[in-house]
């Protein structure tokens, strides 16, 4: 693990990985969108609104994945002082917030025609809204201190405390009687969704994931450059 704690090694690895994930993401989006919009059938109950699922569900998965990975990174930052962990969390947060917003908006756009309402305060929707606020809170908190180290420390603690929300989101549809349907892909008895709809969903989920990988690499590089700038400014201020 500590082999990768080294920013220069990370940058070399990132430079290798970035072109691959970028191209892969472009291909997956093309294929996934073709399948989702053209090749897949409409739902026998929901008609064409089922196509919203191909955006809504990958966005929701990525919202949860991003937060979980940030919480793990926060633990690594607090316990091992892993220098890249903070960089990762800070870089990933706006992306996670974007996925969560996308999930909420597309959910609303799906809820209006199918449930007859844009929004209900049911457990799933409310816990995802809380996830969105956790992202925003983290982003605000990290930048709220003059000393970046203190900001990162506070942010990491917020991420760990907020991690309790992730299982709540996941199991909210089972624990409470919600308007939101329970899981149909990630379930013990296998996916309860036909292959014609499962494939575009999985391909677009992978497209979202590779998009995230490429973008988070760009953001981490920017954050590392920012840290270098701060160090240079300090030496400049102290050295002259």
């Amino acid at each position: 693990m500590h082999r990768f704690a080294n920013p220069a090694r990370f940058l070399r690895l990132a430079a290798l990985v970035l072109p691959w994930v970028s191209v892969l993401s472009a291909i997956l989006f093309t294929v996934g969108l073709y399948l989702a919009l053209l090749a897949s059938p409409e739902d026998y109950q929901q008609g064409d609104t089922v196509r919203i699922m191909y955006v809504h569900v990958p966005a929701a998965w990525m919202a949860m994945f991003t937060y979980s990975s940030m919480a793990v990174a926060a633990a690594c930052a607090l316990v091992w002082r892993h220098p890249l962990a903070e960089v990762y969390s800070k870089a990933a947060a706006p992306l996670g917030a974007g996925f969560t917003l996308l999930c909420l908006v597309t959910g609303s756009l799906w809820g209006e025609p199918m449930w007859g309402t844009w929004w209900v305060w049911d457990a799933r929707l409310t816990s995802v809204l809380i996830l969105f606020f956790l992202y925003l809170g983290y982003m605000a908190l990290v930048d709220a201190f003059d000393d970046p180290q203190r900001g990162h420390r506070a942010g990491a603690i917020l991420l760990l405390v907020g991690a309790i929300n992730v299982p709540i989101i996941k199991f909210s549809v089972d624990w409470w009687n919600t308007l939101h349907q329970p899981a149909s892909v990630l379930r013990l008895d296998g996916p309860a969704i036909h292959g014609d709809m499962l494939w575009p969903l999985l391909i677009l989920a992978l497209a979202f994931k590779t998009y995230f990988a490429a973008t988070v690499i760009l953001r981490m590089r920017a954050e590392l450059a920012e840290r270098k700038i701060q160090t240079l400014r300090l030496t400049q201020a102290g050295g002259v």
């Binding site: 919009l37 409409e42 008609g47 064409d48 609104t49 196509r51 919203i52 955006v55 809504h56 966005a59 996308l102 908006v105 597309t106 756009l109 799906w110 209006e112 025609p113």
Partner: peptide, 14 residues
């Protein structure tokens, strides 16, 4: 299928 506004705005927002 008549749901153009919902479907296309979802993909647009994405």
């Amino acid at each position: 299928g008549g749901y153009a506004i919902y479907v296309w705005s979802s993909y647009g927002v994405a």
